[in-house]
């Protein structure tokens, strides 16, 4: 192990900080994948994986990924809710890895809701 200089220690602090971001809780957004039995059967695990892959590719440390129970709309599964700070939560329906890619790019990274996949915004349904 090389002895550190001050510069190297500072660099190390930056990289190690990424390693513990989950513990510090500074998130600008939250992705909730619905993991009821119906969700899992419809492929919710793969959807979670797709989200985590996208996040990893971008080395994001400010979005949190979590699961929750059945959203009550089994026919629309897999469902995920995206809550970005300061905006109402958005539910997306019948997700696939491709849709996740698009949602990630447009909604999570750029702040634009991908209307075509939306199931509801806030607690209401979009007709």
């Amino acid at each position: 192990m090389p002895k550190l200089t001050i510069d190297e220690l500072q660099k190390m602090r930056e990289t190690t900080r990424k390693g513990i971001y989950l513990r510090e809780g500074n998130f600008r957004g939250k992705v909730i994948v619905h993991m009821g039995t119906c969700g899992i059967a419809a492929g919710a695990r793969e959807i979670m994986n797709a989200f985590l892959d996208e996040s990893d590719q971008r080395k994001l440390t400010d979005v949190m990924f979590t699961t929750s129970g059945c959203a009550g709309l089994c026919s629309e599964e897999p469902i995920a809710t995206i809550e970005m700070k300061g905006s109402p939560p958005v539910k997306y329906r019948k997700l696939t890895s491709e849709k996740v890619k698009k949602i990630f790019n447009e909604h999570i990274m750029a702040g634009n809701v991908v209307k075509e996949f939306v199931l509801g915004i806030g607690s209401e349904r979009v007709g």
Binding site: I6, L9, M12, R13, T16, R17, G19, I20
Partner: peptide, 16 residues
């Protein structure tokens, strides 16, 4: 690494 991530050894850095 965990300690360093939480501003560990920042003080000794400042001191020296």
């Amino acid at each position: 690494e965990d300690y360093i991530a939480r501003d560990g050894y920042l003080a000794i850095e400042k001191v020296v």
